[in-house]
C-alpha cells in the first residue's frame, strides 16, 4: 500500500500515545502510586506501530512482547488503553468500549520469555487449518533468541509453511546482558537461513521501514508461501524494569551509548521527515501531542476513581480455573 498523509499521521499519533502512556506508568511506579512490575518500552514504539497498524486484518493473530507491556501493539490494533491503564493500577474499569484484545487476536503474553514462540506456532497452525488467509505476527526480543523454543517453533513453522511472521525487536539487551555477549552472530535474522525462510534486517527506529518490511512478509505469509523473520534494530532506552539498575552486566550503561539512539528516536525521526517533506505543519503534530497528553491525563483520572479490582468473594476464581 502507498502510505498517504493520513497513514503517516496515524503512525505519529500511535507512537506519541504509546510514549505518553509508557511515561505515565514509569512515573506512577517510581512515585509509588502503582505497584508491581513495569518494563518500559519507550524508544521502541516504531516496531509495534510500524508492524501492526496497517498490515493486519481483524482476524489475524498477534503475539506482542512485554516491553511497554504491549501498549503500542494494543493501540495499533485499535484496542482502548482503558483496560491496560486500569489493570496496572489494579482497578476495575467496568465495561470498556471497543474490541477486547482477544477479538483482535491478542490472547496474552507468556510470563516466561520465549514462551510465545510455540504458542504462535499453534496460532499459525490454526490459521493454516482455517484456510481463510489469516496470519500470525509473533514478536520477540533479542533476549528470547536464547530459548530452544525458538528453534522448535521456527523449524516447524517452516517445515509446515505456516503463515507466521517472526519479528525480532532487537533492543540489544536481555535484562542486564548485552546481546553481543549472548548471541554468536551480529544479526539474529541470520537464523532464518537455517530454517530456509527469508529474512530482513530493518531500522527499527524508522516506523515506515518497519511497516514496509512487515508488509512484504505478511503478503508472503497470506499467500501461502510460509514464514519469514524480520529483525528490527532498536535500543532499550531505560532499565529492563523500573526500579532495577540499568546495567551492562554490572556496569551502568552510559548516556553516550544511548545518545545516538535518542537522536534517532522513532517519534523524532518521523516528525523530522514529515516536516522536511512538507507533509504536515508543526501545529498539526503539536495538536496530536496535546491530545495524547490530555488522553493520558484523563485515563489517569479515570483509573483513580475506579474501584479496586476485587470481586466480592473468592468464588470467582473457580470460573477462572475451569471452563464449564
Amino acid at each position: 500500500m502507498k502510505l498517504e498523509k493520513e497513514h503517516l499521521i496515524k503512525f505519529y499519533s500511535l507512537m506519541v500515545r504509546s510514549r505518553k502512556l509508557d511515561t505515565l506508568l514509569i512515573e506512577a511506579l517510581n512515585s509509588g502510586r502503582m505497584a508491581g512490575f513495569y518494563h518500559a518500552g519507550q524508544g521502541e514504539e516504531g516496531v509495534g506501530v510500524g508492524a501492526c497498524t496497517f498490515n493486519m486484518r481483524d482476524d489475524d493473530y498477534l503475539y506482542p512482547h512485554h516491553r511497554g507491556h504491549a501498549i503500542s501493539f494494543n493501540l495499533a490494533r485499535g484496542i482502548s488503553p482503558k483496560g491496560w491503564v486500569c489493570r496496572h493500577f489494579d482497578k476495575n474499569p467496568g465495561e470498556v468500549e471497543g474490541p477486547r484484545p482477544e477479538e483482535r487476536g491478542i490472547f496474552g503474553i507468556s510470563g516466561t520469555i520465549g514462551g510465545g514462540f510455540v504458542l504462535s506456532l499453534g496460532w499459525g497452525l490454526t490459521a493454516k487449518k482455517n484456510k481463510k488467509g489469516q496470519v500470525t505476527l509473533s514478536f520477540f526480543g533479542d533476549g528470547a533468541s536464547g530459548r530452544g523454543t525458538l528453534h522448535e517453533a521456527m523449524n516447524l513453522a517452516s517445515v509446515w509453511k505456516l503463515p507466521i511472521v517472526w519479528v525480532c525487536e532487537n533492543n540489544q539487551f536481555g535484562q542486564f546482558v548485552p546481546i553481543k555477549d549472548a548471541f554468536a552472530r551480529e544479526d539474529i535474522a541470520d537464523l532464518a537461513a537455517g530454517y530456509n525462510m527469508p529474512s530482513a534486517v530493518v531500522d527499527g527506529q524508522d516506523v515506515i521501514a518497519v511497516h514496509e518490511a512487515i508488509e512484504a512478509a505478511v503478503q508472503r505469509a497470506r499467500s501461502g508461501d510460509g514464514p519469514s523473520l524480520i529483525e528490527c534494530k532498536t535500543c532499550r532506552m531505560r532499565a529492563h524494569a523500573e526500579g532495577v539498575p540499568d546495567v551492562n552486566h554490572t556496569q551502568m550503561r552510559s548516556e553516550e551509548d544511548k545518545a545516538p539512539w535518542r537522536k534517532r528516536d522513532p517519534i523524532i525521526l518521523l516528525k523530522e521527515k514529515l516536516l522536511a517533506q512538507g507533509i504536515v505543519k508543526e501545529e498539526e503534530l503539536t495538536r496530536i501531542e496535546q491530545e495524547a497528553e490530555k488522553e493520558v491525563a484523563d485515563l489517569d483520572q479515570f483509573q483513580a476513581q475506579c474501584p479496586v479490582m476485587l470481586p466480592k468473594d473468592a468464588s470467582i476464581l473457580d470460573d477462572f480455573l475451569y471452563a464449564k
Partner: peptide
Amino acid sequence: DTPISETAIAGAAVGSAMTGYRP
C-alpha cells in the same frame, strides 16, 4: 507427525486450542 520437539508439540496444542481447535 512432528520432529522431536516436545515444547512445540505442547505449545502448538495450547495455541490451537485457544483459537478453536481440540488438539
